[in-house]
Design a protein around this nucleic acid. Structure first.
Lengths: 144, 144
DNA sequence: AGCACTATTGCGAATTTTTTGCGTTAGTGT
DNA sequence: ACACTAACGCAAAAAATTCGCAATAGTGCT
C-alpha cells in the first residue's frame, strides 16, 4: 500500500489509533470534513459528496467518530448536528451567524485556563471531559 | 386582576414587555421552567405538566419565547432542544452529564470579560449577540 | 494470494423530533 | 360587551435520527 498524501495518511492513522477499520467511506468522510474545515451538517456532507454512502451510514460514522473523539460535534443554534475534523487546530471555538449559518473559527481558547477552577466549584462533577463554546450573532453580510 | 405572587407577576411582565399575549399556557410554562430551574427538553416539560397543551403549542411557545430572549435555548450534547427560564440568574453556564443528563449551573461567567477581544479578532462578524458555554463530563453518580 | 472472521455498509422501515395548515378559541383594547 | 386577531388544538407532514438484518469488505493469519 502506498500513501496518497500526508493528509490521507493522517486520517488513516487516526482511524487506526482508535481501532477503527480503515474503510474508504470513513477516510473520504474525514478528508471531506478536513478540506472544508468548518462544521458541516449531515445535509452539507451529503451535498458535498457525490458518491456518498447511505445516509444511515453517514450518521453511524459521525456518531462513532465523534464518540471516539476523532471528529467534534459542534452545537449550532439550528438544532441539527454539525461535525468538524480539524487535526491542525486541535481545539478551538466558533462564531456562528444566526441568519445564514456562516461559521468563523476562533483559534484562541481561554477556557482551558480556567477549567480547573470551574471543576473545583462544581458539586456534582469532579472532572470535565470537554466543553463547547460558541458565539452567536449576525455576520457582516447578514447585518446589512 | 390580582397578582398570584411575585413569581407569576414577573412572568406576566416578561410577556407583556415583549408584546406577547398573556395566555395561561405561556404563564404556566414560564413558571414550570422557573420552578425546575434547569434546562428542560420538550419531553421533560410535557411530563412535568399534567394538563399540558398540545405538543405543537409547546414547540411554538418555546420557539417564540426563546426568539424573544425571554427563555434560553441550551445546547446539550443529546441533540434535543432544552430550554430554561432563570430570571434570577440572567446569564450563566452549565456542566452537563453525558450519561444521565444531569445539569449543574455554573454561576460565574468569565466569557463576557473577554468577549470584546474576541469580537475584535473576528473578520466576518463585528458584533456578537450571545454565547453558549457548556461543559461536558460524567457526573459523580454516573462515574462509579 | 487465499481464507475465515467479524466490523461495516446498504437498504428499508421504524422512531423520534419538529414544523405546518387551518378551523376554533380566547386575550386585548375600545 | 364586541370586534379583532394572536394563540391554540388537532391532525398530518416533514425532517432528523435510529434500527434490524442480510450482504459486503477490511483484517489478521497462513
Amino acid at each position: 500500500m502506498e500513501a496518497k498524501n500526508v493528509t490521507e495518511e493522517e486520517a488513516r492513522l487516526a482511524l487506526r489509533t482508535h481501532s477503527f477499520r480503515i474503510t474508504t467511506a470513513r477516510v473520504k468522510l474525514l478528508l471531506l470534513l478536513r478540506r472544508i474545515g468548518k462544521p458541516l451538517s449531515i445535509q452539507d456532507i451529503l451535498s458535498h459528496w457525490s458518491d456518498a454512502p447511505n445516509q444511515a451510514t453517514v450518521y453511524r460514522m459521525l456518531t462513532d467518530l465523534s464518540d471516539a473523539g476523532i471528529i467534534k460535534r459542534v452545537a449550532t443554534q439550528s438544532g441539527t448536528a454539525h461535525f468538524e475534523y480539524t487535526p491542525d487546530y486541535p481545539h478551538h471555538h466558533h462564531a456562528i451567524c444566526t441568519d445564514c449559518g456562516t461559521i468563523e473559527d476562533i483559534q484562541h481558547c481561554f477556557v482551558d485556563s480556567i477549567q480547573k477552577q470551574v471543576i473545583k466549584d462544581l458539586e456534582t462533577f469532579s472532572s470535565i471531559d470537554s466543553h463547547s463554546l460558541e458565539f452567536f450573532g449576525r455576520c457582516n453580510k447578514c447585518k446589512i
